[in-house]
Amino acid sequence: MNIFRFVGDMSHLASFFLLLAKLIYTKSSTGVSLKTQALYLTVFVCRYLDLLVAFVSWYNELMKIFFIAASAYIVYVVATSTRNSNASDTYRVEFLVIPALVLACFVNETHWSKGGWSLNVMEILWAFSIYLEAVAVLPQLKMLHQLEDTTNITMHYMASLGIYRAFYLLNWVYRLYYEGYWHPIAVVAGIVQTLLYADFFILYYQSVLLRLPS
């Protein structure tokens, strides 16, 4: 575990606490895209199926369980929020899910010559989760651009997700150099995912960091 990976993970963890704080303390899910949160839940469930068959470390196990549980809770809260104005949550997610699934069927890390079919299905689902995570923020980004009164905490949530992605890129550079670690599917999808946040960070800079006190 290098420092870049750890900072990335902590930023990812912080994003959950920021979103949970927003939902619990403001008692409102306004500005939170249910579609993005449902996509993240799908991502974590598909990727962490290996919880059932492999043990890496307690750190990994606990983080995976937390990510699944927290995103499931967030989806539940946002979906059942009576004051949720989801009129602007209009992204057509089938345009994200179906291409990600098709791509995962063709570009994945399966080794059909070894391992059972279930492990290879898990590999396809792992690739699917990587592709889906790369684009899962798009419904949330669309909402941010449409809503005027975006609360700062939602913006900080997005910023911590963007920082998480950026540090994972640094982590991959470090691991490639020092460990020869190379998962091109994750790296290419990670670059795409980080680039999507570049658009957000311009918005963040203009609307949060440059916002004049009123």
Binding site: R5, D9, H12, D50, V53, A54, F55, V56, S57, N60, M63, K64, F67, E109, G115, L119, M122, E123, W126, Y168, N171, H183, A186
Partner: peptide, 10 residues
């Protein structure tokens, strides 16, 4: 099983 299908990241 090869550790997490060779994947140790989140």
């Amino acid at each position: 099983v090869r550790a997490a299908l060779g994947k140790d990241e989140l």
